[in-house]
Write a protein that binds this DNA or RNA. Structure first.
Lengths: 180, 180
DNA sequence: CTGTATCTTGAATGCCAATCAGCGACGAGA
DNA sequence: TCTCGTCGCTGATTGGCATTCAAGATACAG
């Protein structure tokens, strides 16, 4: 039935799997999305995915890279906005990727690769946050710690549902406390 | 082979399962502990657990209740200590239960019962934190928000590994920012 | 035309949570 | 003392899952 399609899509197949996986993982989360379902949506046999990806966690990582690089592009376009606005937009942005970030934390203990991705991602975010804070007037020695505080607060907001207004209040309070 | 043991242990069996499950879940986490393993350690057949608990998440909840009530007892004995000491002790305490708290966040999306447990737990912790902050001199209107900030920072510390010294620095910075 | 590397697949394998249909022990009532 | 229903427990099974295996199909090089 389904034949070899190499002549049709030479290197696009992997990309298509990633796109399909991204949609499904965003919508239903890691645990509720089976490899079989990803394969079905991509129009391939279940085990075909294993030719392109070592295992399910590697699919997750590929999806995460797409999501993050897209988010970074968005962030860049907001360069002119005040910090508060950018933080709120960032949270809304990440939230639109569903439970992906929570899934990462859950998979970190199972997969060293996801662990590594997470650590590197955290490092990058912290660097960005430190730069933002220094730029906004926080002392360089304190910026390192304040960056962690801010990131953990944002993670808390992402991990727990909040009404929009409450979320803004919390961010405002955090910024107020940092820029006392 | 294994016969009915009702005459031997009337209502202790459930407790034993909980104790065994607590040890295993603390040590290896939710996903890496199978029902079969819990059963084997408790000396019963795999499906016997389902006589006492609706499903695996209910076992988790029973274990969480034990862990939390034990932690609360510990907290009470620390009543005299300064806030900073108590927070650090609390973090160390929760950390000794392994990845249990992370597991809760991961299961929240799968099980409404775990969701409910989590929400109620968060409410309780927030109440305690607000009381602490008000008692330490934070304005009552701000205490609500600061409590959330502090809790999210603590959750961040629990979710990510830190050297002891770094953890203390972060807590100190958080308290410094709140009590500016 | 032939061999080799590249894709793709159907059919396993093995682990897991959860279910099913009973089996033996006890306790109440005859 | 009998018996019958409920309680505590069990072996066997089911269905879903990630992952592996052996082999088929395709393209390309020589």
């Amino acid at each position: 039935m389904a034949r070899n399609k190499r002549h049709l899509e030479p290197k696009v197949k992997k990309e298509e799997i990633e796109l399909v996986a991204m949609a499904l993982l965003k919508e239903k989360g890691y645990d509720n999305t089976s490899m079989a379902e990803i394969a079905r949506s991509a129009g391939v046999a279940a085990n075909t995915i294993y030719w392109y990806f070592e295992n399910k966690d590697h699919v997750l990582i590929a999806v995460l890279n797409r999501v993050v690089s897209h988010a970074m592009e968005e962030v860049i376009t907001q360069r002119e906005q005040p910090l508060r606005t950018r933080v709120l937009k960032l949270i809304a942005q990440v939230e639109s990727s569903g439970s992906l970030m929570t899934d990462v934390h859950a998979r970190v203990r199972h997969s060293p690769k996801v662990q590594a991705w997470h650590d590197q991602f955290h490092g990058m975010v912290e660097q960005l946050a430190v730069a933002e804070l220094v730029n906004a007037g926080v002392g360089p020695d304190e910026a390192q710690l304040d960056a962690k505080l801010l990131i953990y607060v944002i993670e808390g907001l992402l991990a727990h549902p909040h009404k929009l207004q409450e979320r803004e209040q919390i961010i405002d309070q955090a910024l107020k406390r940092i820029f006392a």
